[in-house]
Amino acid sequence: MANPTIKCLFSAAVLASAVLGGVKVTAAAPLQYNLQPQEIARDTWLLQGKTEDFSRKNGGNIVNTAFIVTKDGVVVFDTGPSFRYGRALRQAIASVTDKPVVHVFNSHHHPDHFLGNQAFQDSTIWSLPETGKQLALHGNGFTDNMYRLVGDWMRDTEMRLPDKPISEAMMSQGLEMGAHRLQFYRFSGHTGSDLVMLDKTTGVLFASDMLFFQRMLTTPHTPGLDIWRQELDKLKAMKYRKVVPGHGPVTEGSAAIDQMRDYLSWLDQRLKKSAEQGLEMVEVINLPVDERFKGISLSQAEYRRSVVHLYPAYEDAQF
C-alpha cells in the first residue's frame, strides 16, 4: 500500500515548485529510457524492451538490445530506436565495464534496431551486405516515421548507416573477441536479410527479429511465411543454451520458436482458406485470431497488419 501522507506531501511539493515565481509551469515527464542491464549469461547483458507497439510513452523502447563484455572490448547487438536510446545504452554499458565498444552489429533494417547507431561513432558498425542496401533505400523514411510515432524521444536522431558489410570470411570464420567465439548466420524470414549471432562460448543465441516471444511478430517485409517457417526449423536445430528474441523475454529451450512456428502455420492456413472462400481483405482483417494466441501481446493488432501485408499474394493465387 502506498502511504497517502507521503503522496500528499509529494504532490504539495510539486505544486509549490510549479507555481514558484507566480508562473505556472506544466512540466513534461522527462524522456528517459532508464535502461537496466540484466546479466543473462557470463559477460552477457540484455536491455529488454517492452512487449508493446511504438508510442510516445515508451519512446520506441520495445526492442531487445544486448552486449557482451570481453577482455578485447565490448560487442553490441542492435542499438535501439533513437539516438537518445543509443546514448542510454552506452551509459548502461559504462555502468558495467570501462572497456571500449569495439564492434556493433545491426541485425536488420528496421528502425528500432539501428537508430541508436549515432551513439557509437568510435566503434565499427557491421551489418549483412543486403541490410546496408535496404537501409540506404528505406532508412530515412523509417526515421521520419519514428518521429511521427514517438515524437520528441527522437530529437537529433538521424540515420547512421553501418560502416561495413560483414564479409564472407567473417561469415564463415566468425569473430574471436577475448574468450568469446562469435558465429554469424544469414537468415531472411523477417525482412529478407536477418543477422543471427551465436556466442559459442556462452551458448547464447541472439536471434534478432527472426524470433518474437510473447509479443506478436510483424510481417511488413517478410519474403514469405513458408520461408520464415523453414528458417525457424534451422534455428531450432542450432545448439544454444539461451535464446534472445528481438522482442520479448529470453528463454531456454524452444518455447519461443515453437510459439512462432505455430502462429505462422496458423496464419498461412487462415489466409489460404479465406482466399479460397473469396473473402475480401477487410473481412479477413475483422476475423479474430485463434484463442490460443490471445495471450500474446498485440496479437489482434499485428494479425490485422499482417493481413494487409500478405493477403494480396494469397488472393492472386486464386485467380
Binding site: P220, E280, M281, V282, E283, I285, N286, R304, R305, V308, H309, P312
Partner: peptide, 16 residues
C-alpha cells in the same frame, strides 16, 4: 464503410 484503423500501405487501403 469498412476500413482498417490504419493505412498500413497508403497506396493499397482496403475499403468495403
Amino acid at each position: 464503410v469498412l476500413v482498417p484503423e490504419f493505412a498500413e500501405d497508403p497506396t493499397q487501403v482496403p475499403v468495403s
